[in-house]
């Protein structure tokens, strides 16, 4: 009797298989998202200092008194200087336009793949994914070679006699858009394809039987049905592009103002880790809305499956 009680108690403490499996992602999230985030949050309330590490500790413990000293100056500073707001807006604009471009290019591609023969689909999806097997840095460097004044594109256009002087593309926002759309296109196509390939063709056949034009069927059936795929694809592009640093740094010019670069400057040029952390925290706050949207659409997608 006692033994059984004991066992039951033990069982209550030790997680069963189901809890273990659910627990793993939570531990992962805690270790690699929550913990780093709290460290960044902590630094954002500190003050810059000439020391290792280059910021002050926000709490002191002396004579059994724990003192917490939060410096809100870093956040106040972000509001004072229009540079930071301009950088956030610059990043959001860059992300928004790139997402729209990815959708416009990616949707027809995903649609074409989804309507291809089954054997061909695998090959086409592989072709979409293959470029991502090369490191992004190398692919962006390749674009530098293509877009530069003495590059492949200008060389081709000049040899064709279409232009007399090289087009200035590298080191402009246009180059950043090209780089971003190229790099993130697979993230748009794959969720769209995953969604489109599940569509039931009999719906389109029924619509056609009832006299609906092809475009009408596409607009009123395919698009609404692929809504969740569109949201997922858009978020997978939008969220990382807001914080993008490498592509604008390599392809962008002086006028490219994005939050990643400003963050870099605070961190490296000003040696001001607290302000850099405050910038990162605010960026996360801005991204929470699209992240929630993304999660919702994912949840809906799952429900749809069941």
């Amino acid at each position: 009797m006692n033994m059984r009680k004991f066992k039951r108690r033990i069982n209550r403490i030790i997680p069963n298989g189901r809890q273990l499996v659910i627990g793993v992602p939570f531990i992962w999230l805690f270790l690699f998202f929550m913990l780093p985030f709290f460290i960044v949050l902590k630094i954002s309330f500190a003050e810059a200092d000439v020391a290792i590490p280059p910021y002050t500790e926000i709490y002191t413990f002396a004579e059994q008194k724990l003192q917490l000293l939060l410096n809100l100056g870093n956040y106040a500073m972000l509001g004072d200087d229009e540079l930071y707001i301009a950088a956030y807006l610059g990043s959001l604009k860059m992300a928004f336009i790139s997402t729209v471009l990815c959708l416009l290019i990616g949707y027809p591609m995903a649609y074409a793949i989804a309507s291809a023969r089954k054997e061909l689909q695998t090959v086409l999806v592989l072709l979409i994914m293959m470029p991502t097997w090369t490191a992004i840095l190398i692919r962006v460097y390749a674009w530098m070679g293509i877009l530069s004044n003495n590059g492949l594109l200008n060389g081709f256009l000049m040899s064709m006699g279409l232009i007399d002087e090289p087009l200035q593309i590298l080191n402009t926002n246009l180059a950043v858009y090209i780089g971003v759309v190229y790099s993130y296109l697979p993230f748009m196509i794959l969720p769209l394809y995953a969604n489109l390939v599940k569509h039931d063709n009999s719906l389109l056949e029924a619509a056609s039987d009832l006299g609906s034009s092809t475009f009408n069927s596409f607009w009123k059936i395919t698009i609404p049905l692929s809504k969740n795929g569109i949201i997922a694809g858009c978020m997978l592009v939008f969220i990382p592009v807001v914080g993008e640093f490498v592509i604008p740094e390599l392809l962008g010019g002086p006028e490219t103002l994005m939050i990643g670069k400003v963050l870099w400057q605070e961190f490296f040029n000003n040696r001001d880790w607290p302000v850099a952390s405050a910038l990162a925290v605010v960026m996360l706050a801005i991204l929470i809305v699209p992240i929630i949207l993304f999660n919702r659409s994912q949840a809906k997608e799952m429900e749809g499956k069941e």
Partner: peptide, 19 residues
């Protein structure tokens, strides 16, 4: 010093990005 450094970095951003 940190204050001058911040002024210079800020100037530099303005020079590069026009903001």
């Amino acid at each position: 010093d940190a204050a001058t450094l911040r002024l210079i970095t800020r100037s530099w951003t303005k020079i590069k990005s026009g903001r």
